[in-house]
């Protein structure tokens, strides 16, 4: 049970797909002009991650080693087609906005990466937790980007006006360059948090080892 929690939590912060592994950049930049677009994209990717991961994990003893990558791609493409048609049927407007980027989930390095690194080697149960963790991690990354860009670009969150009328919309946040700048700054902030946590750990660690060393020195005498 503990192992499943670590599987789930890994993708949420420590190995965050966007900010740490820098995978799946194309959708992260392209569909995050509003928060709702980012969320839909993230959930569609999570669906594909979990379903294709499950099937790949179930078939891991049947897929020959040499043709594994094409097999994974075909499995992923099948579920992406299903997600695409479902989105088109029930959420037609958002499907129109996401457009090309729904089929491009197929070539999202995150999905093939998890298939190769985790699903093809582990049990179905662990795979589901792992895929869910990475999927939700990807989704919150996209929603965060979307919220920042929507607030500054349109003055709203999830379509609700939050900024006062006097706020002058930053058009650049909606344009392609705004996507690059926002993601670049967010990556920098994430790195800063991680580096700060690491240096704190290091200080604690050195203090601890120093005191332990002193203790052993004393015990020698």
């Amino acid at each position: 049970m503990v192992r499943m929690w670590t599987d789930l939590l890994r993708g949420l912060w420590g190995e965050h797909p966007i900010f740490r592994l820098v995978l799946g950049m194309c959708p992260a930049l392209a569909v995050t002009n509003t928060a709702i677009n980012g969320m839909t994209m993230g959930l569609a990717t999570t669906f594909v991650l979990v379903t294709s991961g499950t099937i790949i994990s179930l078939l891991k003893h049947f897929i020959p080693q040499r043709v594994r990558i094409p097999s994974y791609i075909v499995i992923i493409a099948t579920f992406v087609t299903a997600a695409d048609y479902t989105l088109n049927a029930f959420w037609h407007d958002i499907h129109g906005v996401l457009g090309l980027f729904v089929p491009l989930i197929i070539v999202n390095c995150l999905i093939l990466g998890r298939a190769e690194a985790f699903s093809s080697k582990n049990t179905v149960k662990r795979t589901i937790f792992d895929s869910l963790g990475y999927g939700i991690g990807f989704t919150w990354g996209l929603v965060l980007l979307g919220v920042i860009r929507e607030v500054l670009g349109f003055g709203s969150i999830f379509g609700m006006q939050v900024m006062p009328d006097t706020f002058y919309n930053w058009t650049i946040m909606v344009l392609p360059s705004g996507a690059f700048l926002t993601l670049g700054v967010l990556l920098g902030l994430y790195n800063m948090l991680i580096q700060r946590a690491e240096s704190k750990n290091k200080v604690l660690h050195t203090v601890k080892t120093a005191s332990e060393g002193a203790f052993t020195d004393e015990s020698v005498y």
Binding site: P176, G184, V185, G188, Q195
Partner: peptide
């Protein structure tokens, strides 16, 4: 370049400036 911005981060910010030029 400041340490947290090194790597992919500064590349993306540079790409943002390039995208402005291309627009």
């Amino acid at each position: 370049v400041p340490k947290p911005l090194q790597g992919a981060s500064i590349t993306l910010i540079t790409a943002g400036v390039m995208a402005m030029a291309f627009s």
